[in-house]
Simulated assay, not measured.
Amino acid sequence: MARRDDSPDFIEAIARGLDVIRVFRAGQPVMTLAAVATASDLPRPTARRILKTLEQLGYVRQAGGSGFELTPRVLDLGMSYVLSRGLWEIARPHMEALVARTRESSSIAQLDGSDIVYVARVAVPKIVTLSVTIGTRFPAMQTSLGKVLLAALPLAEAERVLAEPSRSGIVTPWQPDTAERAAALREVRARGWALTDEQLAPGIRSVAVPLRDGDGRVIAALNVNSHAAETPLEVLTGQHLPLLLQTAGAISADWAACQGVPQVTTAGSAS
């Protein structure tokens, strides 16, 4: 997985360290040195040095004798992004109000290659087939959040993104061809929201809408997620969707207002 780049500014060691962190996945929390080396396509001595460095930094620890596992400190890497964007602080009160009214979980996600990555979530206790936390990734095309984000791209760009392999580790029941993808994304663009009904996994049903900045660009997607056995489609689209659209509008307006606040430099002058 380690990449090489002709640019003199590219630091191979950092790329390899991130590759090692990424090989730890759901269902595989503890890995031996040999497994890490194989999964990251690195020589064992290199993988060992990286693991020892990450261990000293507090991102990895030894487990089960010959195994290694990530520590909660790894969450700092993702939360640094979420908090630096400020989206969570702006969205949280609106999402909490939405969840209180719908009694369904709500999440915000952004696109990363052909996957979505969850960056904010307010959940209610539900039995679902796939657990979701901040940092969870799913194949974009099979989710309502992903459809919204892909629909915001030109069709050619969306297809280029979808050509990238998913890093979610999930095999979905719906595997659309090029024509199906194009038709689905055209529909999302036309109506302004997206629906998925057990296309990601059995029992998962959700509707999503875009979040926009002050210039109208889609910066993320917001959804209401439900269990198919508990929430009929008529309720999801007839009752929850209007509330979701209102919430997205409020979050987008607050985000635009935040963007419009002059930034103050360390010298105290507005920029």
Rank of each mutant, 00 (worst) to 15 (best):
R121N: 14
A158R: 05
A156K: 09
K126D: 09
I134E: 14
I108G: 01
S107M: 14
Y118M: 14
A158C: 10
L130K: 13
R160W: 00
T133L: 10
A158W: 05
A151E: 09
V122P: 07
D115V: 07
E104A: 11
M141D: 03
R137N: 15
R160K: 12
S106K: 03
L155D: 15
V122E: 14
A123P: 03
L153N: 06
V132F: 05
A140D: 07
A152Q: 09
G146E: 06
S114P: 01
A156V: 13
E104H: 14
K126G: 03
R101E: 14
A158K: 01
I108H: 00
R103L: 11
V124W: 09
S144D: 08
E96C: 04
L111Y: 06
T102D: 04
A123F: 02
V124M: 07
R160F: 00
P154Q: 10
A151H: 10
L111S: 11
L98N: 00
E104C: 09
P154A: 13
G135F: 09
G113S: 10
L150I: 02
V119K: 08
V132G: 05
H94N: 08
S144K: 07
I116P: 02
V122G: 06
H94C: 13
T136G: 03
F138A: 11
R101L: 12
L130D: 03
L130H: 12
L150G: 06
L145V: 02
Q142E: 13
G113E: 04
T136F: 01
V99M: 05
A158D: 06
S144Y: 09
Y118N: 11
V124R: 12
L111R: 12
R103W: 04
P139C: 08
A152F: 01
L153V: 01
F138L: 15
L155F: 08
V148T: 15
L130I: 14
S131N: 12
Y118V: 15
V122W: 03
L145R: 03
S106G: 07
L111N: 11
H94L: 01
S105M: 08
E96M: 10
F138Y: 12
E96F: 02
R101C: 00
T136C: 02
K126A: 15
G146S: 09
